[in-house]
């Protein structure tokens, strides 16, 4: 559908397709990988704990198959994580913020500043280790938009920028 409507034909609408996205901090890739590794490790420990009670699980052929599967799955998860890092991005515009994500199922979410109700900076334990943080924008639309992998200063800066924009909008 082309916008043949007279009212807007003359207007050059800014397009979301020509945006250059900023990448999350490179350390965020490590955060993602560590999260995967920790999860995989917890699974493995869980298996051994169960194995302690059901000794059959720890016999050699079964153990080898399990370890092999575990390594392959963990490897795949890490590859996927790296890929998903490559596909993350956000972009600030004058009046809204864009955030893209997804390896196979890609999505772009655009949050206009004049719809933001409030924003929050959060730091998980692994993120804190790397000095990273994530910024969540709350709108009345329910699903909240989170921009991950920002350095703490950057998150603070973004939050201030957005808060200022929201306030400016409310004044008008």
């Amino acid at each position: 559908m082309k916008f043949s409507n007279e009212q807007i034909k003359s207007l050059q609408l800014p397009s979301i397709d020509v945006i250059e996205y900023e990448k999350p901090d490179i350390a965020y890739r490590k955060v993602l990988m560590y999260s995967v590794l920790i999860f995989a490790f917890v699974l493995l420990v869980g298996y051994f704990v169960v194995g302690y009670f059901a000794e059959k699980l720890l016999t050699l052929p079964i153990l080898m198959i399990v370890m092999l599967t575990w390594s392959i799955l963990t490897g795949l998860a890490i590859i996927f994580t790296v890929k998903s890092y490559d596909n993350l991005g956000y972009a600030l515009r004058d009046k809204d913020i864009l955030s893209k994500s997804g390896v196979f199922f890609k999505s772009i979410v655009i949050v206009p500043f004049n719809r933001v109700q409030h924003s929050e900076i959060e730091q998980g334990p692994i993120e804190r280790l790397f000095g990273l943080a994530e910024l969540t924008l709350f709108t009345a639309g329910g699903d909240d938009e989170t921009i991950s992998g920002l350095s703490f200063d950057k998150a603070q800066m973004l939050k201030n920028y957005i808060t200022a924009k929201v306030a400016a909008d409310e004044e008008e």
Binding site: M1, I8, L13, I16, D17, I110, N114
Partner: peptide, 12 residues
């Protein structure tokens, strides 16, 4: 994408 752009324009 055009519809998205237009809606954003309307909101903003």
């Amino acid at each position: 994408r055009n519809l998205g752009d237009f809606i954003l324009y309307k909101i903003e």
